[in-house]
Design a binder for these strands. Sequence first.
RNA 1: GCCUCGGUGGCUCAGCCUGGUAGAGCGCCUGACUUGUAAUCAGGUGGUCGGGGGUUCGAAUCCCCCCCGGGGCUCCA
Length: 631
Amino acid sequence: MKILLIHSDYLEFKVTEKTKIAEDTDTLEGRMEDCLTVFMAVEKEDEKNQENVLKNTLNEIIKTAENLKVNNIVVYPYAHLSSDLASPKVAREILVDVERELKEKNYNVLRAPFGWYKSFKISCKGHPLSELSREITGDMSSPEEISIDEKNKEKKEPKLYLLDVEGEELIELDRKKINKIIKDEELRALAIKELGIKDSKEDKREPPHVKYIREKEICDYEPSSDAGHFRWYPKGKLIRDLLQDYIYNIVIENGGMPVETPVMYNLENKSIKEHADKFGERQYRFTQGNKELMLRFAACFGQFMMKKDMYILPKHLPLKLYELSTYSFRYEQRGELVGLKRLRAFTMPDMHTVCLNMDQAMKEFENQFWMCLKTGDDLNTPYSVIFRYTEDFFEENKEWFFKMAKEYREKYGKGVLLELIPERSHYWVGKVDMAVIDTFGRPIENPTVQIDVESAKRFNIKVHDGNKETYPIILHCSPTGSIERVICGLLERAFKDFEKGSLPMLPIWLSPIQVRVIPVFENHKNYALGVAERLKENSIRVDYDDREDSVGKKIRNAGKDWVPYVVVIGDEEVENNILTVTIRKKSTLKKSFKEKMTVDELIKRIKEESKGYPYRPLSLPICCSLHPIFK
RNA sequence: GCCUCGGUGGCUCAGCCUGGUAGAGCGCCUGACUUGUAAUCAGGUGGUCGGGGGUUCGAAUCCCCCCCGGGGCUCCA
């Protein structure tokens, strides 16, 4: 059975002529408003299992009708959907059954007569769900969904495989097997997303990170901008800047050269227009004077233009230019914007590597893959990995892939997913995506490395080798993914930790306030302030709670601010010249973990924990009473 | 973009169904209390109820349009 579902403003028809197989009917014309029009072709195959085909068809129609909230349904026989039709008798039976069953479910049904030539008029609503086609079998499992757009495109679908920890062979994944085969929960979440499986069981609330960004005064929506654009408060700005420093360092260690390029481009440039057009509707475009301009959606544009003008020699390769694109702009669909996960303006670390040939590209791909994975270790946000290759590329480079995947599995104890794409449809022949899994088991896609075989030519980027000129291979790499998503991942991770019983917090080097000093009595204030100042001199972000609250309340507030080390100073501490430090990492909601140590020991401890990570000073006043209230 | 739920002091929310002068807690301010590990007590301040239009003698409440946010679709080079 093939059906075509059109969400219509109206459908009207009128019979024009009988055919030999025409049914007897009084319904010679009809019209229905705001309806779901279902064009149907019953096929030979359906005769084998009429009952199930009927059931599956009804399910499909009802599901769509519910989804679209329509109560009017037109059942319209439409033989042209199939070249292998059922006998007229069976077809008519099924159509009549569909009509009857739908009426029993209280739908208003209009059925166009079978076996007549008819003229019809239809007005399609035109929203994304308004046109759907379905192929229905007698099989009781759920039917494959093919949207009308995809149908024209490809017969062959990409395939998804698992390379498991123990296994040496690729296992093809499908909806049924997935739960049994993939043991790692997070990797399974990624596979589920890839296969487009919907999990309706869990009721999803606002993601925890959305609550945290406001509560912790990190950032918030800016209602006076476009949707999906954020304002950043001092604490959030500090976290962003630290992450920026971190990526800057890691890129330089790996031979990248930071540059900066414009955020907007003139579409008169042919290569830019071509590259931009591939991205479709999802960009900001505007006219200024007589120019058509666009806002960049990645840093490719500026870097490619820069490379086009460079005189590149083989000895310069691999040549890596890096830019933190503050911002990249993508005009995402309104309903797609969620907190820090999906934005219209975001900050993307973007590095492009010019490689002499595929050999060099593959070697670099591997280096950059490990660099990306290291960011997951450093940020304590483990990634799940999916490689994507075109079939051709994979066939030629299987061994390389298996070697890389094996090393990964040995190091991380986790399998990887592999997607094989029948034909190259984008600029890349191979890529790897790494994702953090959020509280609701949805992937936050972050770092990526891609092998681009198209852009060098498009942007006229050449390598000069003797008297030869060649087009290089270019790698795209984002070592962490967007800064906003990194923060999203960190906060979701913090919430997951909280669900497991530990207190949520950021890594020490990213905590806006690393130490809070709390005096017990008025007469401890000077001593406490002295301790705070000493820590500050040693490049530790510290504040001092001089507010007129009880000690209990100050402790509570320090907890709400996720301060990793809380120092309470009373008589005992002043007398013995020692600190009592509450360590958040080792505490729980019920019991706080305290340790005695000297100021020097505390300094040493924090230095050690943040060793190798960037530092920036706290921009807020040292006295808590003077902190501005943003939220 | 579609469907759906929501927007009420700085924050979290009640009131809306059944129209009749806007409520609570937190914060903030003032006062009392010399306070030892997750909220000390009392008083006070604070709101054109997201915006616009309509119905009504009267709208936070009912209706329409728009903006913003959450969820579900769809999308994600």
